[in-house]
Amino acid sequence: MSVEPIEPVAPAKKAEPHPLLKLVLELGPLLVFFFANSRGEWLASTFPMLADLGDPIFIATGLFMVATAVSLTVSWLLLRTVPMMPLISGVVVFIFGALTLYLQNETFIKMKPTIVNTMFGAILLGGLYFGKSLLGYVFDSAFKLDSEGWRKLTLRWGVFFLFLAVLNEVVWRAFSTDFWVAFKVWGTMPITIAFTMAQMPLIMRHSLEPKEQTVEKAMEKPTEG
């Protein structure tokens, strides 16, 4: 039985935003979530309408949804497109955020990273099973790698997404809400950045582009919120 070769799948090249703007759009909602949770009581007393949402975690959830909507809107207005990963993550934020507020149950927003990371992990590993590397679509990437490079990188990211899903489950179930919120911003983000940088040797070995251009693109990879 012959094995079909891995076919890299990448989207058409399009204009990229300034790296600083891209960072703000991706990290902005997370920072709003962290600030609102840590200063929830102050926000409730300063803006009485927010007090109706409930405890700080619910205020943070509501503002997180607003910040996510603003981020996606700005991305669309500037680029006339929304990258796949932030779009899917945003949809899950709206659904689980709404359930969190309506049912006054913080479990839903805590499970959001688990759902998103499991989804992306399953997409990447499922694509490999059918002989396709879907990493380009998930990361809105314009990398030019050979087939072996796409296969190896897709496998690594698929496993890493599943690792993040398990890690989120462990943290929110074993620690306090405040710890989980802080870890979501100051723990998951550095881990993802470190993992991204650790893939540079693989990317450089299999890249079909000049070294400088490859490094620049690798530094612009998005992270899940």
Rank of each mutant, 00 (worst) to 15 (best):
S2N: 14
V3T: 15
V3G: 11
P5G: 01
P5D: 04
I6Y: 00
I6R: 04
E7H: 09
E7P: 00
E7L: 08
P11D: 05
A15D: 07
E16G: 00
H18Y: 07
P19G: 06
L21V: 15
L27C: 11
L27T: 06
L31G: 01
F33H: 01
F35P: 00
F35N: 00
A36L: 04
N37K: 01
R39I: 04
R39C: 11
G40R: 06
E41F: 09
W42D: 13
L43E: 07
A44F: 06
A44C: 07
A44M: 10
P48C: 05
M49S: 11
M49E: 12
D52Q: 12
L53K: 01
L53S: 08
I59M: 05
T61A: 08
G62C: 07
G62T: 13
L63D: 02
F64A: 11
V66F: 06
A67N: 03
A67V: 02
A69Q: 04
S71K: 07
S71D: 03
L72H: 06
T73M: 14
T73V: 12
T73S: 15
V74P: 06
S75H: 10
L79M: 12
V82S: 05
P83G: 01
M84A: 10
M85I: 13
M85Q: 09
M85A: 13
S89L: 14
F96T: 11
G97A: 08
T100I: 09
L101N: 10
Y102F: 15
Q104L: 12
N105A: 15
E106C: 01
E106F: 12
F108M: 05
F108A: 08
I109V: 07
I109T: 04
I109K: 06
K110F: 13
P113Q: 10
T114F: 15
I115V: 15
V116L: 12
M119W: 09
M119T: 15
F120T: 03
A122D: 02
I123G: 08
L124V: 05
L125P: 08
Y129T: 14
F130I: 15
G131H: 05
K132I: 08
S133H: 10
L134P: 04
L134G: 04
V138R: 02
D140N: 14
D140A: 09
A142S: 13
E148R: 11
E148I: 14
W150C: 03
L153T: 13
W157V: 01
V159F: 07
F160C: 09
L162P: 03
A165I: 01
V166A: 15
V166S: 13
E169I: 01
V171M: 04
F175P: 03
S176V: 15
D178C: 00
D178N: 12
D178S: 14
V181S: 02
A182R: 13
F183Y: 14
W186H: 09
G187H: 04
G187Q: 07
T188Y: 14
P190E: 06
I191Y: 12
I193K: 13
A194N: 06
F195M: 10
P201A: 09
I203K: 10
I203N: 03
M204P: 00
H206D: 04
S207F: 07
L208N: 10
L208D: 05
L208Y: 04
Q213H: 11
V215I: 13
A218H: 08
A218E: 06
A218I: 00
M219R: 14
M219V: 13
K221W: 09
K221P: 00
E224R: 05
E224F: 10
